[in-house]
Design a protein around this nucleic acid. Structure first.
Length: 569
RNA sequence: CGGGGUGUGGCGCAGCCUGGUAGCGCGUCUGGUUUGGGACCAGGAUGUCGGAGGUUCGAAUCCUCUCACCCCGACCA
C-alpha cells in the first residue's frame, strides 16, 4: 500500500475532547473519528487493526469448536419481554418503533435471540453441546460514554453462547471458552489477568472477567502474586482478622471533635492511627435505616453490602433521613446508644476491634475506648462489606493480595438455565424427557481491545502495536522518493517484493521531509521501519529499525527482503 | 439524572470581564528555495463566532431560552 493512495489522517494535536492516552492516539493516528457522543467511525487505518483483532478471535473461536452466526442488530420487543429484560434493561437499551408502531431495540446483547434460535432448532441431546458466536455491533445507551472507543455507546462485540445438556457439560464449555480467551489475549500480546467476577445484570453462577492491566483501567482487581487467586475487588473476599478481638483496656470517654467529620480528621486530632476509628455509614432499605460499620481506613464495597440478608437493595441515607432517625449530623453518627430497631452491620474487621473511636451521635463529639458487649451490644450482623486493600491476606490462604487496575476486555458467564427456562428452550434427553438447556455466554469487547492495547503499548511518539494487531507490519520510508530515481526504484522494488512475500507494507511515497514521515510512522505505531536513501544505497544498504529499537541497523540492500522478513518474526 | 465546564475556519487556542464589525499557531492550496527528525520565503482560501430570541445606533462580547460536547458520580464488553 502506498500512502498516496491510502488515507492517512494523522493529527499533530489531539482534539480537546480526548482525555485518555489511547483516545488521543487513536484520534491523532487517524484510526477513528467521532460522529456523536459514544459514536465513532473506524477510518481505513483503524479498521485494519479491528479486522486483525477479529481475525485472531475468529481463529480461536473456530479452533474451540464454536460456530459463527450473524444475528440481527435490531430485535423485537416480545423476545425481551419474555425474559423480563425489556423493562429491566431500562434506558440502557435503545428502543425504537417501526412504521407499524411495533417496539424494537437495537440489541445491547443477544441472549434472547440466540435462545430463541435454540428453542426452535435444538430438540435433542444428540445436538449438544453446541456453541455459537458472532461479531456484532451492539448498542448500549450508556449513561456517560467516555474515553472514546473504550466506553462507546455503539461498539463491536464478539459474543458467544454455549448450550449443554447438563451442568457438567456447561462447566466444560465454560472451560473451553475460558481457555480460548486466554489464548486470544495472549496472541494479541496483551498483559492481562482473568479474575473472578460478579455476574451483574446478565445473571448466572460462575463468571470471570479478562482484565487488561492498565493504570487507566476502570476496574480495580485484586490478585495474589504467590498463587493464582485473582478477583475483581467488587468480589474479592476480605477474610476476618486472624487474631480474635483483644480485651477492653480503656473506658469509654466522650471527647470534643468540633468540625471533624471524617475519620481521617478525627484520628489526626486525637493522635490515633486511622485504623482505630470506626466509620458508620447510614443506608436506607425501603423506609428502614441501617447502619454499616467499617474501620476508618477501609471503604464500603456496595456489591458485598447488598448481599447482607434483608439489605438488598439499599441506597445511601440523605442528611434529612440521618437527622430524623439518629437526631444527628452525618459525620458524628455511631453505633453506641442507637435505637435497637436500627440494624447494625459490622464489617468483619470492625467486629474484631476493641477500644475503638466512633461518632457519639452528637454533633461535635466522638467516643473513644468503645467496646462491643460493654458499651453497646454485639452487632446483629457481622459480614464482609469492605473493599480489600493491598496487603490483606489472600482468601486462598496462600499469601497477601496486591491491587491493580484493569480494563475489562472479556467476560465469561455460566448462565445455567435462566434464559432457557424463561423462554422455554428445552431438549429431549436420552429418556425422552424435556430438560432446559444449560447456557453460557461469553463476550469480548472487540473495539475496546484496540483501545486497551494502545493503553498498554505506547510511548511519547505514538502507538506501539503488538505485531498481530498492527495495521501494517512494515513502514517503508524512502528519502527523496520524488527526486531520486535510484531511491524510487529501490523503494518500489522492495515494496513490490515485500507485498509479494505477503508482508503488509506501507510505502510513504509522499513528497514529505523525512521528519514528517518518521513521525507519522511512529505515531501510527508500525512495528518495523525500513529507510531507503541515496546515502544508504551508495553504501549498498537500507536501514532497518524496530519500533522500540534504540537505533537503526544497516542491512545489505541486495539481501534486504530476506533480512527484513527474518526480523518480522 | 445530579454536580462542574466548554462551544470562535479542518485541529489547538486568543478575543468576551470593559460591545465598535474577528485574530494567532498548526494544517491546507499556489509558486519558489529546501530535503536524514514535524523546513523557509512569498501569496491565497477557509468563520451565518453552536442555535433562537432579546437589549442596543451597533453583539463573538450583555440578558433569556435552547442544543451539542467534555469532565466527576451510579452502568458495562
Amino acid at each position: 500500500m502506498r500512502v498516496s493512495r491510502f488515507f492517512l489522517a494523522t493529527l499533530k494535536e489531539a482534539p480537546a475532547e480526548a482525555e485518555l492516552v489511547s483516545h488521543k492516539l487513536m484520534l491523532r493516528a487517524g484510526l477513528i473519528r467521532r460522529l456523536g457522543s459514544g459514536l465513532y467511525t473506524w477510518m481505513p487505518l483503524g479498521l485494519r487493526v479491528l479486522r486483525r483483532v477479529e481475525a485472531v478471535i475468529r481463529d480461536e473461536m473456530n479452533a474451540a469448536g464454536a460456530l459463527e452466526v450473524f444475528m440481527p442488530a435490531v430485535q423485537p420487543a416480545e423476545l425481551w419481554q419474555e425474559t423480563g429484560r425489556w423493562d429491566l434493561f431500562g434506558p440502557l437499551m435503545l428502543k425504537v418503533k417501526d412504521r407499524h408502531e411495533r417496539d424494537f431495540c437495537v440489541g445491547p446483547t443477544h441472549e434472547e435471540v440466540i435462545t430463541d434460535i435454540a428453542r426452535r432448532d435444538i430438540r435433542s441431546y444428540r445436538q449438544l453441546p453446541v456453541t455459537f458466536y458472532q461479531i456484532q455491533t451492539k448498542f448500549r445507551d450508556e449513561i456517560r460514554p467516555r474515553f472514546g472507543v473504550m466506553r462507546a455507546r455503539e461498539f463491536s462485540m464478539k459474543d458467544a453462547y454455549s448450550f449443554d445438556a447438563d451442568e457438567g457439560g456447561l462447566a466444560q464449555s465454560y472451560q473451553t471458552m475460558y481457555g480460548a480467551y486466554a489464548r486470544i489475549f495472549t496472541r494479541l500480546a496483551l498483559r492481562f489477568r482473568a479474575v473472578a467476577a460478579h455476574t451483574g445484570a446478565i445473571g448466572g453462577s460462575a463468571s470471570h472477567e479478562f482484565q487488561v492491566i492498565a493504570e487507566s483501567g476502570e476496574d480495580a482487581i485484586a490478585f495474589c502474586p504467590s498463587s493464582d487467586y485473582a478477583a475483581n475487588v467488587e468480589l474479592a473476599e476480605a477474610l476476618a482478622p486472624a487474631t480474635p478481638r483483644p480485651a477492653a483496656t480503656a473506658g469509654m470517654r466522650k471527647v470534643p471533635t468540633p468540625g471533624k467529620m471524617r475519620c481521617e480528621d478525627v484520628a489526626e486530632l486525637l493522635g490515633e492511627p486511622l485504623r482505630r476509628t470506626v466509620k458508620a455509614i447510614a443506608v436506607m432499605h425501603d423506609d428502614a435505616l441501617w447502619m454499616l460499620l467499617l474501620r476508618g481506613d477501609h471503604t464500603l464495597n456496595e456489591v458485598k453490602a447488598s448481599t447482607v440478608p434483608g439489605l438488598d437493595p439499599f441506597r445511601f441515607a440523605t442528611d434529612a433521613e440521618i437527622a430524623r432517625h439518629l437526631g444527628c449530623k452525618a459525620g458524628y453518627i455511631g453505633p453506641v446508644g442507637v435505637d435497637p430497631a436500627i440494624p447494625i452491620v459490622a464489617d468483619r474487621s470492625v467486629a474484631a476491634m476493641a477500644d475503638f473511636i466512633c461518632g457519639a451521635n452528637e454533633e461535635g463529639f466522638h467516643l473513644t475506648g468503645v467496646n462491643f458487649g460493654r458499651d453497646l451490644p454485639e452487632p446483629q450482623h457481622v459480614a464482609d462489606i469492605r473493599n480489600v486493600v493491598a496487603g490483606d491476606p489472600s482468601p486462598d490462604g496462600k499469601g497477601v493480595l496486591e491491587l491493580a487496575r484493569g480494563i475489562e476486555v472479556g467476560h465469561v458467564f455460566a448462565l445455567g438455565t435462566k434464559y432457557s427456562t424463561a423462554m422455554g428452550a428445552r431438549y429431549l434427553d436420552e429418556q425422552g424427557a424435556p430438560r432446559p438447556l444449560q447456557m453460557g455466554c461469553y463476550g469480548i469487547g472487540v473495539t475496546r481491545v484496540v483501545a486497551a492495547a494502545i493503553e498498554q503499548n505506547h510511548d511519547a511518539r505514538g502507538i506501539i502495536w503488538p505485531a498481530p494487531m498492527a495495521p501494517f507490519q512494515v513502514g517503508l520510508v524512502p528519502i527523496g522518493y520524488r527526486k531520486s530515481a535510484q531511491v524510487r526504484a529501490a523503494a518500489d522494488e522492495l515494496h513490490r517484493a515485500l507485498e509479494q512475500a505477503g508482508v503488509e507494507v506501507l510505502l510513504d511515497d509522499r513528497d514529505e521531509r523525512p521528519g514528517v514521515m518518521f513521525a507519522d510512522m511512529e505515531l501510527i505505531g508500525l512495528p518495523h521501519r525500513v529507510v531507503v536513501s541515496e546515502r544508504g544505497l551508495k553504501e549498498g544498504v537500507v536501514e532497518y529499525q524496530g519500533r522500540t529499537d534504540a537505533a537503526a541497523e544497516k542491512l545489505p540492500a541486495r539481501d534486504a527482503l530476506v533480512l527484513i522478513t527474518e526480523r518480522l518474526g
